[in-house]
């Protein structure tokens, strides 16, 4: 039974890839002549890409997709993807471009090509304006909640070894310590802080200082060099005119750091 199922599924996949093959040509000229660009954005990573109350995709990566389609002068075909299937979608030619909070690694670069970074996820210490902290040295007797053993914990321990760090089992418990007032500050990823504020607007999780950045990159197939070059130009211009910085500020609430072009 299982064998049969596997055979049917693999036959289906084979047929799908055969069908997809003609459309796989996704370089710049093909997009322009087709009059539409197919872009993948995250479905479950607020504030980069998620669904709003009307079930419409919203987020930083969604805005990027719209801006790219507009600059190309073509129609946008948005596809919502997850972290697990974003590279397969691109490699099988179902998408031309993936904008999905993707970090660049040499391993991933063996499969797909990355543009210059367009935004960054950051780890930092967050809290209300009333607490006068803007750098690690300012931390004296303020209590900071953090999930034990995470990147944020290791960074904070290194930057402020004498700070009053309260370590909890996970991000959710550390968040509870902040929301219940048991901790005055919360060390976490900026997107976690942002989502918490979106869910409860009474929370004040402003960035006090940023400890580390993880740039995010646009992914394309390796056989579309012209598209990659165009995207790099698009990102470069966006960096110069401040539109990318505004986009990061709008969705993440943290300033965009100086990102090295790829």
């Amino acid at each position: 039974m299982f064998k049969k199922l596997t055979r049917i599924v693999s036959a289906g996949l084979l047929a799908a890839s055969a069908l997809a093959a003609p459309g796989a040509a996704g370089d710049l000229q093909d997009i322009l002549s087709a009059g539409k660009v197919r872009i993948g954005v995250p479905v479950d990573v607020a504030p980069f890409g998620s669904n709003d109350e009307n079930n419409q995709p919203v987020g930083l990566d969604v805005d990027m997709a719209h801006n790219i389609a507009e600059a190309l002068g073509v129609e946008l075909e948005l596809q919502q993807i997850t972290g697990a299937n974003r590279i397969p979608y691109l490699l099988t030619g179902k998408l031309d471009i993936v904008i999905s909070v993707m970090g660049a690694t040499p391993q991933r670069a063996l499969q797909i090509a990355f543009s210059s970074p367009y935004s960054a996820v950051s780890s930092g210490v967050f809290g209300p304006d009333s607490i006068p902290v803007s750098k690690p040295e300012d931390l004296t007797d303020q209590t900071i909640a953090v999930a034990r053993g995470t990147t944020q914990d290791l960074l904070l321990t290194k930057l402020a070894p004498n700070a009053k760090i309260q370590r909890y089992d996970d991000d959710a418990t550390a968040a509870a310590a902040f929301t219940s007032g048991q901790a005055e500050l919360f060390a976490t990823a900026d997107i976690v802080a942002k989502v918490m504020m979106m869910q409860d607007p009474s929370l004040e999780l402003k960035p006090k200082f940023i400890m580390a950045f993880n740039p995010t990159y646009i992914g394309v197939r390796q056989d579309s060099p012209a598209l990659l070059q165009w995207l790099n130009t698009f990102v470069h211009v966006g960096m110069l005119d401040g539109s990318l910085a505004a986009l990061t500020e709008k969705w993440l609430g943290t300033p965009l750091p100086d990102l090295q072009p790829l």
């Binding site: 909640a145 034990r148 053993g149 309260q166 370590r167 909890y168 418990t173 048991q182």
Partner: peptide, 13 residues
């Protein structure tokens, strides 16, 4: 689990 640094908390750290 509420951040008390007793023996088990220290061990986890």
């Amino acid at each position: 689990s509420i951040g008390v640094t007793e023996l088990f908390g220290q061990a986890a750290f």
